[in-house]
Amino acid sequence: ELDLKKLEPILEEYVLLLTEADVAYEVAEELIEKFKERLKGKKIRRGEDEKKIIEDALREAIYDLINIPGPDLVEEAKKAKAEGRILKIMFMGVNGVGKTTTIAKVAYMLKKAGITPVLAAADTFRAGAVEQLKQHAERIGVPIVTKPYGSDPAAVAYDAIEFAKARGFSVVLVDTAGRMHVDVDLMNELRKVARVIEPDYKILVLDALTGNDAVEQARFFDEAVGVDGVILTKVDADAKGGAVLSVAATIKKPILYLGIGQGYEDLIRFDPSWFVERLLGE
């Protein structure tokens, strides 16, 4: 039988290892605490490598935590098209995480699959935000609906849906302004957008470089607006992406895609086993 007392230092090491991979400290601590329960009463046969057994068990525990099935947006778009309805996806998150770029990547992915989405430039606040999305739309070759700076974001999103209906497009991707999750007025503004357009998916965009704050971001957005899935960006910045665990543990919502560069092709589906390898592998 495993001697948990003796393992205490190793388990503490794991907490640090996880925090070094940017898993939020409280999440890492709790994960290892629960993991201890799992180890209780585990038997080892003579000659078996104790450390390997523990590590395999930890891999399993992490895999179980993050293996939350989520929608494939291309499949969803195809379904919507076949059924003659409009798939509405709204992107949200704190400032600078990569929302606008991610929308461009998703638009590119859909276009490549034969479905042309409409972009809604509902960030009417940040300098250059409309021009940024417009340039993406032009490069990718998809329509975009804009309004002057200072316009009501909900009105832009609404117009984009009307536009899609009128012209027979079946997907609308709504870009929203970055905002701090603790800014009550701005979170209410986001709620209003959601109320007006009733999105099929509200996607939280999260920066893989984020440390402990990932927990806060996930919790606040989920409570205020509701999160259906998460996209983690900038994974190419050598970030281990521990935020994946922070999110899974906090709001139990699936990670859908990872952003792995600034190009349109740099969006991949999230694969839990790949991620566990990255987190714990050599």
Binding site: T19, E20, A21, D22, V94, G96, D207, L209, T210, G211, N212, D213, Q217, A237, D238, A239, K240, G242
Partner: peptide, 11 residues
């Protein structure tokens, strides 16, 4: 960015 985690150092 205030929210950056452990990558701040190597960066």
């Amino acid at each position: 960015d205030a929210s950056i985690g452990q990558q701040a150092k190597p960066l």
